[in-house]
């Protein structure tokens, strides 16, 4: 009983969302075509979890692969920029251009070039995940304390050893900030790209359910996408704190 009360104290806003949603539909007298009641949506998810599971898994997997690839490319680009002024002159402006164009505007272009399918979606997530990892790794590499650099200099460490044993570990908390910032956007980018150009995943499921007027399914997809986004954010924040504490 007490635990139930504790949970209620903690999670009442979630319950309030569902109650508010229900009231909003009922009081306005909306039909299911306009907006289904939450009970119907939850019932659809409970009745046919298999209809969602495959697409959910696909979205999560695509997001994860794209995130890892994008951050990996960002970190490598940061190391390249750190190691050579010539590379920095090429990579930095390109990264800024990539950043300035909104991803939504890029999706049709990317799909035209890379084809309507998973490769485009991955590419879009990579574009979204690249920049924060790039910028924060550059600043992490540059922010190595002078005392550490002096120590490594006196101990006769070469550039590569200084990078691997001092600067990169020092940049880890910065990279984790990038991870926390990027992980939810990667999921968002995946959903958006699937919705616009995909052949599967939650975004695609939403788009097809809507066009077949399966409104419970469409809303169920949106609900799942919201839950997934929130969970990804919470997990990423936890990882950032944990790893950040380990490295500082």
């Amino acid at each position: 009983m007490r635990r139930a009360l504790g949970a209620l104290a903690h999670y009442w806003p979630i319950a309030a969302v569902f109650v508010g949603w229900d009231l909003w539909v009922v009081l306005n007298g909306y039909t299911t075509v306009v907006a289904p009641r939450p009970g119907l949506v939850l019932a659809d998810i409970a009745a046919e979890p298999g209809a969602y599971a495959g697409d959910l898994l696909r979205t999560l997997l695509t997001s994860l692969v794209g995130l890892v690839l994008g951050m990996g490319v960002g970190i490598l680009a940061a190391i390249a920029v750190w190691s050579s002024a010539a590379v920095s002159g090429v990579v930095t402006p390109a990264a800024l251009v990539l950043r300035s164009v909104p991803v939504t505007a890029m999706i049709p272009v990317i799909a035209r070039v890379a084809g309507y399918g998973d490769s485009s979606i991955l590419l879009i997530i990579v574009v979204v995940s690249f920049f924060p990892a790039f910028v924060l790794t550059v600043s992490g590499l540059a922010a190595t304390p002078a005392a550490g650099r002096d120590l490594f200099g006196v101990l006769g460490a070469g550039r590569l050893r200084t990078l691997v044993r001092l600067q990169l570990p020092h940049a880890v908390p910065h990279v984790m900030v990038a991870f926390r910032l990027t992980a939810p956007s990667a999921v968002l980018a995946a959903l958006l790209a699937e919705y616009l150009v995909g052949t599967g995943g939650l975004g695609h499921l939403f788009s097809t359910a809507r066009s077949y007027m399966e409104l419970e399914r469409a809303w169920g997809t949106a609900l799942l996408a919201t839950v997934v986004s929130v969970l990804v954010f919470v997990l990423a924040r936890g990882a950032e704190r944990r790893v950040g504490a380990r490295f500082s």
């Binding site: 304390p145 005392a147 002096d150 200099g153 006196v154 101990l155 006769g156 570990p169 380990r246 500082s248």
Partner: peptide
Amino acid sequence: LARSHRLGVAFQEHALLPW
């Protein structure tokens, strides 16, 4: 001498690697 790893130093800042 530093390149041949023959120097030892301790500064006011200990510069220990926190990880």
